[in-house]
Design a protein around this nucleic acid. Structure first.
Lengths: 193, 193, 193, 193
DNA sequence: GATGAATGAGATTTCATTCAT
DNA sequence: GATGAATGAAATCTCATTCAT
């Protein structure tokens, strides 16, 4: 059996995704885990603490370092590189839909502490993107005249927009194969000069 | 003197932007407007009603029809067109920073009714983008082989990402002139082929 | 045109009957009379004052002195006497249904001041009943060995019970002719020995 | 110690009887029970819910099936039967004075939901009275030519009138022995032919 | 006399958190 | 470690009444 703490996180993700942070109550979560209210507080110091944990979990899953060499080996051009990368990322979002919904929808809002954690995560994300950017420049996939900041905004903006629309705004399953093709095409064209 | 309802909206935008929806209380708003609690309820039926009003206000300001012919006349190519358009939009966001912050940060979250209103607004936005898309195709600024949905996602994704980062994530003033130049350049290159 | 004060009373009776005292608001009443809120307070000092007025109005209509001689002339025995009397009373209730509903349903409840007013009215009612009792004894319609208090309780209890059930508990119109026959029969038999 | 829910009911009856439903506040009740406000809501979902509970409690106590055989065995005629029955009922009211006051005074008023519950109770009461009526006919204590509806109205009207006057209208203790004698006498005479 | 925008005391209800068992 | 009854601060909202116009 998975441990208590993990069980709580699993159910909390479902509850938060379904009802939003403020409309989700500790009572909802402990009911689903089948533990008493007091038990929750043995593992988390507060509802806020739990949510911050989810932001950190999201960061671990989605903003760990890119496997740049792997994508490079499997591809022969920028579009191919993008395809590898996006396929991996979109798959991850599809597999962690509820968590993605929570973070994309609410992490930056609600509470100053969440905003702060979100900013930390965003900074981390940009650090990773810088590695990507430098890698692509080094491999001559993109031109170094591209301003990094705007490269990054286009990249995350387009991705987040797609993901947000496919996961948060609609109910149906996210068929990411078509998205991989389209988005990699656009991004390659945009960045490749 | 502006009318009561408008006064309440003005202060509510400030309060919500500073503290978030759930951490803002009717008491905070009425204190700032210097009216009694009951007076608030003469103009809005609930806190939720007020927030929905702000979503609608945002839509009115930001998702009214594009002035396509004006941008076209003032420009000679796609980049020029984009510059005109983005300058107007970024200016609007800079001038309505607090409202932008609220909507970009929280409108989709919090409550099912807000999500529903947000979706209506998003649909409206895409309808306007379709007009833009058709206009650009007609004027031969972009190739009709571009898939509209992905055109739209790139467009709104990039814009929202810039705006979100410049308004929500940092405190400093939004110097939109540089952003206009960079983003129009990227979008023109991306969409121009 | 009837005067303002009377108009307010007329509409207030309808509103109180439909929604009960506490769920009826001054706003409901003034809306129906088509006057402003402030105007209400030119004619009544408070919502309570208005309700007390209705209790007094009820008393005027229903607990004025019995027309004993008239009933006596028109009848030849106790049952006939009762018939005359009940017909008049039931007719009055049918004609003032909403007011009856309010008083029978709520006058004794809600507020200490109402209870006090109700008790005054009840005392007045019993004073009248004493006149009736003495009259019936004098005319040898009833035996003076009847204890007045219990005579009164049976009389008002039976009447109020019928009226309550016919006016408050059911929606349909009060066909009082049958009630007159049945109740006069019972009362005559009960009291006649 | 009695359980919490019961404690709340006991104190609520006192508070409602003393001040009326609308002038009684949750704060008054929880203060008397010496619990926190939140605790109240662990046992009742709302103030209304509590009051409905009291109506149901009254029904359980006062409108459970009559012990007809017992009264019959103990008595030799209709008056004797009535005495047994009334003694038991009046005693019950004397012992549950506050609850009786609340229900007789307010249950039918105040709120549509209370009225609905009251009507259900009244129906139940009449069902029981029908059993009484049939029993009395069967035992030849009363003549079957008596119309049941009016039999019932006389019966409940007289009883309620006495009880209302002895419990609600006056402060002094209800000496029900005299009432038993007088009322049984009247009822027996009324119904016995 | 008439108006109706404004008032504000005060009610019900919520729910994260605690702590004795 | 686990429990869950109890807490109570704090929020939203109501509505009779006032008073400047």
């Amino acid at each position: 059996m998975t441990d208590r703490r993990e069980q709580i996180i699993i159910e909390a993700i479902k509850v938060f995704a379904a009802k939003g942070y403020y409309n989700s109550h500790i009572a909802d979560i402990v009911d689903k885990v089948r533990i008493a209210k007091g038990t929750f507080y043995l593992y988390f110091s507060s509802k806020k603490d739990l949510f911050l944990e989810l932001i950190r979990l999201y960061q671990q899953i989605f903003h760990c370092e890119f496997n740049l060499e792997k994508y490079y080996k499997k591809s022969s051009d920028l579009k191919g590189f993008m395809e590898e990368m996006l396929a991996e990322r979109f798959k991850l979002h599809a597999e962690n839909r509820a968590l993605s919904v929570i973070i994309l929808r609410e992490a930056v809002a609600i509470d100053q502490d969440f905003t702060a954690e979100y900013k930390k995560m965003d900074q981390h994300r940009f650090d990773n993107l810088k590695l990507l950017y430098d890698f692509l420049v080094e491999k001559k996939y993109i031109n170094s005249k591209n301003d990094f900041e705007y490269f990054a905004c286009i990249f995350v903006g387009t991705l987040d927009s797609i993901i947000f629309r496919k996961l948060v705004m609609v109910e149906e399953e996210f068929n990411y194969l078509k998205a991989v093709d389209k988005v990699s095409d656009y991004l390659a064209r945009t960045l490749a000069n």
